[in-house]
Design a protein around this nucleic acid. Sequence first.
DNA 1: TGCGTTTTGTTT
DNA 2: GATTAAACAAAACGCA
Length: 592
Amino acid sequence: MSTEDLLAVVRAPAGLGLADAERAWAVPARDAAAAAEVLARLESERSPRWVLWSAEDLLGPLLDAAPDLRLARAWDLAAVCRLLEGGARDDPSAVVAAAAGLDPGAAPAAGQLDLGGLVEEAGGAGDGGAGGPLRADGHLRADWADGAWAASPASAAAWAELALATAGRQREQLTGPSASGRAGPLHTAWSESAASLLAVELGTSGLPLDVGVAAEVLDRLVGPPAGTEREAAAQRAARDAPVLRLLGDATVDLRNPAAVRAALASRGLDLPDTRSWRLEQLAAAPGAHPVLAALVGWRQRERFAVAHGHRWLAEHVAGGRLRATWSASDGGAGRMTATGGVHSLPRELRPAVRADPGHLLVRADLGQVEPRVLAVVSGDEGLVRAAAAEDLYSPVARRLGVGRDVAKVAVLAAMYGQTSGAAGAALAGMEREYPRATGLLVEAARRGAAGEDVRTAGGRRVRGHRPEDVPVEAGTAALDAHRQALAARGRYTRNAVVQGSAAELFKAWAATVRARLLTSGPSPSERDGEVVLCLHDELLLHVRADAAERVARDLVADLDAAAARWCRAVGGPPVRFTADVAVVEDWSQAKG
DNA sequence: TGCGTTTTGTTT
DNA sequence: GATTAAACAAAACGCA
């Protein structure tokens, strides 16, 4: 492993290119173009691993002005803090506290008046205008967290130096005794940081979306766009009319679930709720009231119009790009998430996700990631062998002596904590034939139910929540609720170790793909293409048409490399990972 | 009036 | 009877 050349960078309102700093840089905040120039020069001269307080905060505004800037490698202090702590806070105060082994809860929150720090001022690191960045107790000074570090070039330098020192401390935690000699957590820090860079880039460049195609789809499914509020109301009324006629009551508010439920009840249909699957079930029965089917259809159209209608299109799509805000690691398991409806784009709209002229999309789906990841983290020999097959569920079905469908349900039920129905029966076979895999899941669930933390393969901490004590005199209802809450926490942690580890493998792959694309050319137009969507187990790339076949081949090679590295780093056996890759013009087209 | 909760539905 | 996880997002209701 080569020694890393760490360079820290911050954006200061005044001054740039700190004369006294070899490794700590401040770039001008006002002049984004100049800042991007400095970064691009350092990137090409020294190809450092950039230490950033947060890629989102630093790079987001910078890319708005200089969208072509690409940093190859980073150490994102916020991302690594989330990884190590599993908490929600990742601001500099919390990052510094966690890296120093202090209680992040005691760290000053942004905007908080910090009298204690002002009184007992400390020497600390650096020598900014008003003392160093740290208080005597090791916490970050509140005024520095609020931006006082930007007062002078010297204090900006101290702020960047603190970033370097903090990265060093995080690194020690990642490689320390708790890592037990494994490189997993360090690798995760790198790939999570790369994912942070990617998240900012995805937000800036957006997903190619053909507005004409989208508008056609919307016209067909929900009608033309409404120019005025009156028109919108008229369209709503027109959509409602047939259902209300069948209902025989024009006063029912179809958008109010309680009103719908009451209306159905008065016609002899007493339902616990009005969810679509329930309505569909009833509508399919012989002699069913025709309003049920009508209501289901109405719901689909209404849902589409509200969530992904013309308003959505106008709000989120501009210049042929659907833009969203991306998070590199969200929720307990650390998946990538996006706003703007990007991750729940209805199938009907996928034809609109279309490559620009002269370009193609390359889509790649991981096959059965979660059971394969379970094979790695558990080291279960039987599951590792099953993963050697293109279709993992076939060998599992043979071993359990059941059909493939049942085997699939059993594997998923084990990972998600399902105990009832057909899955419950198949589960016994899983425990018998794959004891290490199920054992790991049961232990994760036990820890969750006991309020203990669990960790993903790459070392992400998933916090348990301490169960609240139930009063001894509590009734059966309260006890039941308590038991249910414990079971839910168990399912949560059981799922998090698999889903979270899968997210890490996915990001390692995405980071590898991104790195290769960056080396394919010196400027965006000369490169093969770029990643435009990450969807849990699917990558979508927008590439030059002449490079598409090569990129598609490379995606598979990158998966092999990333997966082999990841298996080794987390201390698991080598497990086969597969991907379906296809070169397509739009996202709706079939996989390879 | 505003904010938090409930209901619903889409994706993986 | 009972249905497994995670996200984002909108509208309506309920409470203060």
